[in-house]
Structures are given as C-alpha cells and as structure tokens.
Design a protein around this nucleic acid. Structure first.
Lengths: 217, 217
DNA sequence: TCCTTACGGAGAGTAACACTATCCACTCGC
DNA sequence: GCGAGTGGATAGTGTTACTCTCCGTAAGGA
C-alpha cells in the first residue's frame, strides 16, 4: 500500500499523512526505493487511532503523539499509559489552585475512599471546576459536607460505572492491543459519556415540556 | 467599579475584557463620561461565567457568545438554552455519519426509551464515536445487540444520574438565575464527570497494581 | 493650575495550532 | 520514453484568542 492508497482507505489527505510522519505520529513505511514506501494495516489502524483521539477525544496532535509514544514503548506499564491519557484529558488551571478548594477536594476524595497521587492532573482539574462552580452557584454553604453531598450523585454513578469498566478489560490479549484499548476506553469513553448524558437530558426535557421544539444547532 | 478593578477582581487582563466587550460577550459598563464607564457585580459574574465556559468547558468564545445570547434573551425557553449548550458541546463529525451506524444508534436510543430529535447534535456525535470504536475494537460482533450491550453500563449509570440531576434543579428561582444554572449544569458538569471518572480510574489502578508510581503530566 | 496617571475605544500585531500548497528529484507502469 | 505519481522538505494559510500600541480624554494629587 502506498501513500495515496493509505489516504484513500482512511480518508486522511496525503498532505496530512506526510505531516503526521514528520511529526512522528506514525512510523515511516518500509522503503522500497529512494522515493517509494510501503504502508500496511498497522498504518491504517494507527491513522484511525490518531483521528479518533484528535477528532473525537479533542486532543491536540502533540498530546496524541505523547500518548502514542507511551503506547509504543514496550516497557511502559498500563498505569503509565493511563497516566499519559489522563494528562492529556485534564484541563489543569494555569494558576495554582486555591488551597481551600484543594483541601475540600481532598476531603471529598477521602470520603469516597479514592486514593490518588497529589500530582494527579484530574485532582487539580476538579479543584478548578469546584472553585468555578462555588463562585457561580447561589447559596452560601461552601462547607466540605455540602461539597460531598453535591458531588454524591455524580460519584455514585461513576463508582457504579468504574466497576463495570474494569470487568470489561480483556486480559488474555497481547500488550499492544490491550494498551490501545485502554487509551480508547479512557479517551473516547469520556466523550461517549458526555454525548449519552446529553441525549438523556434532551429526552428528559422533551418529555417534560410537551412541546417538541426542534433543537438544532 | 472601573475596568482596572473589574480586571483585578476577576483576574482577567484588561485587554481581554476590552476584547470581550468588542465581541459582545459582555455588556458595556454604564458610561459616566466619554472615556469612563462603571461596571458592577453583574459584569464580574458574567466574566466568571465566560471563563468557566471557556477554560473549563472548553468552548470557543464564539460558542460561549452564542450560549450567552440565548441566556440573555428573556423569551428563550429552557430547552432552547439547553439546546444551545448541547450544540456547543457536541463534536459533530464533518462528514455525514454512515447510515448503518446511525441506524444502530437509533436502535440503541429506542432500546433505552430515549426520544431525541433527528437533528440532535449529540446523536450525530454518538454515531461518530460508535463508528470509531467499532473500527478500532477487536472482535467482529457489530450487531445492534452488541452495541446495546456494550453501552449498557454507561447508559445505566447515566439514567441513574439524570434522575438525580433533574431533582436538583431549583424551581422557585428567577429565570435568569435558573438558565445560568442550567448552562453550568450542562457544560461544567460534563467536565466534572470526566475528572471524577479519571480520579476513580486512577484510584482503581493504584489499588490494583500496588506500585504507586507518581503519575505526573 | 499643572501634571502624572489611568481610562475607553479602535486597529494592528502575535503566537500557537493544524494543516495545505508548492517544489523537487526520482521512479513506476504503461 | 514519458507522464502521472511518490516521498521528502520548506513555506504558506486560515483560525482562534488574545495582546500591544496608539489616541484623545479625564481624574486626582501637588
């Protein structure tokens, strides 16, 4: 398979594939001459993975490259792969989180029995979200208890989900397939959950207010 | 309050506030002279809302502006506000979704009893996600039943969540406060769920593989 | 009153990102 | 033998979200 065919089967323009090659997101094809190279199914798969990460997951190509580097490293452990994916998904606030909010978040995590490293991007992100929500939500009960109670519905749903997800992880599968599935399960499933939630919301709103106004973009 | 103070209390640079004014994301302050204007708490609040939508929600300023226009329109209904937020959150694929996947998605929605409009951005987004996952997941059972089964854990968790969220919506509150809460509940909660899920995942992985490797970005 | 500082408004400039277009020497396939 | 196509490199483009600079004016202290 040459570049043009690779482009045709994946729908990615040739110029973009060349650029991905330069950026190191995909491996070079096997050279058959000075200006000819052969690509195979692994390139097709990799290209699809990149597009999924970028188009659906919303990652930058830099972030995708960083994750793929870990995926490709045969010595990287599963939690390193997960860590790379988590790092790319978190929107960590620029400024240091305010310590009060961070303490509240830690209190919440402890109440859930969730143990995470202090450097966890998701922890910093959550602190930023909680801070913004606190500032923008009327009502003045900003106690640790109020936070734990407010997040309870979300945390309950997630606890339930996490159990189901862990069970689904295949275990009799080669490492490269597994890590790819882990990345997909981390990055794509986050968007999946979002769209499902919006679908459920839309349905609930349509049911509540009988007028079915066409909700278009 | 003048521009500099508005900048100081919100942490948004003066030049950026000026730009938001030009772009129509915030209303002008009340002019007290040719080159003096007064801003108030509503401007502070609006600025915080914009930053939350953009920094946390990941919306573009265009999308934030579109949502805010609906929020500000006193004749807009709640589902129009929700629709605007959903439109901004969905990553709808450029090309038309392939009809087979769309049919599968509709079958899944029907199996859940979720009724949504055919123009729903979330429906198109879900089709794109399902398509990408199907292409990238080993195993060849791409039947409608397999999809319903595969999405079941997610849909179950979300059904549980949606019920709790609807209950939490305040109802004895002025319209402008309510619509703002709906926007926050739609946009910020999506990121909230993501970060909670990653936290739960990280905790689960730390627990499973005893070695607590520091997961940094 | 003068004078320094700050103000708002407008336009141009900038940095990052993700491509996209052009050019080139080469080579495959008819 | 020759034209379309190939891989590789470099430069250019469009978008986004600011950021800088300038200007005439105004506020507030000396």
């Amino acid at each position: 398979m040459r570049l043009a065919e690779l482009s045709r089967t994946t729908g990615v323009p040739p110029a973009t594939i060349k650029w991905y090659l330069r950026e190191g997101l995909i491996r070079k094809g096997e050279a058959t001459a000075r200006n000819q190279a052969q690509y195979d199914e692994s390139h097709v798969r990799r290209l699809r993975l990149i597009r999924a990460l970028v188009d659906i997951g919303g990652l930058t190509t830099q972030e995708a490259r960083d994750i793929l580097a870990v995926v490709d490293d045969p010595n990287a452990s599963i939690d390193q792969v997960v860590g790379a994916a988590h790092g790319a998904l978190a929107r960590v606030p620029d400024s240091d989180a305010d310590p009060t909010t961070l303490a509240q978040v830690d209190h919440f995590l402890a109440s859930r029995g969730w143990t995470v490293s202090t450097g966890s991007p998701a922890r910093a992100e959550l602190a930023g979200i909680v801070r913004a929500m606190t500032q923008l939500t009327p009502g003045d009960d900003h106690s640790d208890q109020a936070l734990v109670a407010g997040l309870a519905p979300y945390a309950n749903a997630i606890d339930q989900l996490a159990a189901a997800e862990v069970e689904e992880l295949p275990h009799d599968v080669p490492r490269d397939v597994l890590v790819e599935q882990v990345v997909l399960g981390t990055v794509l499933a986050e968007r999946l959950i979002g769209s499902l939630r919006r679908l459920a919301q839309e349905s609930a709103f349509l049911a509540r207010y009988v007028t079915p106004s066409d909700i278009n973009r």
